[in-house]
Design a binder for these strands. Sequence first.
DNA 1: ACCTGAACACCGTTCAAGT
DNA 2: ACCTGAACACCGTTCAAGT
Lengths: 179, 179
Amino acid sequence: MSTYHHGDLRAALLKGAGKALEKQGITALSLRDAARRAGVSHNAPYRHFADRDALLAALAAEGFRMLGEALRGKPGRARGEAYVRFALEHPQRFRLMFGGLLPLARHPELREAASRAYQGLVDAWKDMPDPQIAAAAAWSLVHGLAQLLLDGHFASQAADRDVFVARVLGAVRLAQRAA
Amino acid sequence: MSTYHHGDLRAALLKGAGKALEKQGITALSLRDAARRAGVSHNAPYRHFADRDALLAALAAEGFRMLGEALRGKPGRARGEAYVRFALEHPQRFRLMFGGLLPLARHPELREAASRAYQGLVDAWKDMPDPQIAAAAAWSLVHGLAQLLLDGHFASQAADRDVFVARVLGAVRLAQRAA
DNA sequence: ACCTGAACACCGTTCAAGT
DNA sequence: ACCTGAACACCGTTCAAGT
């Protein structure tokens, strides 16, 4: 037993990889680096993750749980602002979650975590005549805003980000009845 | 002169890389592969691109020009639908453009192409009291919708994608005056 | 079960050399 | 100027072997 470095190598790998992710970005995130951070051979991670994608998917699923947590209980526009804040506070995690490197179809754990986070959004619109559509519109708006802010497309206009976000979200009304 | 394979190696590299991009995705896109497709040594591309990122940036800039072209002249909601269609027709190109692998700050050519595409959107809202905010909201909405559709987050609801897109876009109204 | 080192086929990038 | 082959330091992944 003393030859085993970790009681929970899987958790140690995720922690190290999470650090590497935010510091260096997705591209620089390697299995070998995660193994190094955990103090094991470059091959040990394969006991816990089938391949590099499986590690990325686990990190992304963590991200969806973090996002769901950040949104929980927030009403109306505050929820949208919390969504944007999450993206800006965890830029690389957000990109990993939505960068399309991990097709949901191939990662059931990820699909599960994502739809759980999304469910909170749907519930908030359940009194509308068309809650699915309203929720999709609301999610699209805040997601697009977060992504474009992150990429710097609104840099020139967003001297004060919080004000800019509030104004954009405030400019939109969801119709009572879809066209 | 006969030892030179191409009158325009740069164009040949971009073309080959564009093909590899849509077929294999961003991760699989390598300078060495692009060189192979163009029939030159793995080192020749460095005469035209400083590094791999420069090639990616050139492909992304091409993408922004394609997007601007796809939106040109489209009125109102048709523009939003064209935006979503572009993303679905060129998924990997779209991800490259917005995946954050290429910070606009580090790639002026890219920033230029992007803001040119965005300008068309701003112009469409110039009669609103707050055109910058309205344009940002409209872009956020269609961008988020495109991205989430691409990722498969609306898969269960989007049996008929065109109808779904029309309903989501139709559910939103831009207020005459920002809050 | 869990971990290891060696090996294979890939990368991006640099360098010295050829025309 | 443009292109080449050799070399270096990285990868992901597989394999046979150790405890």
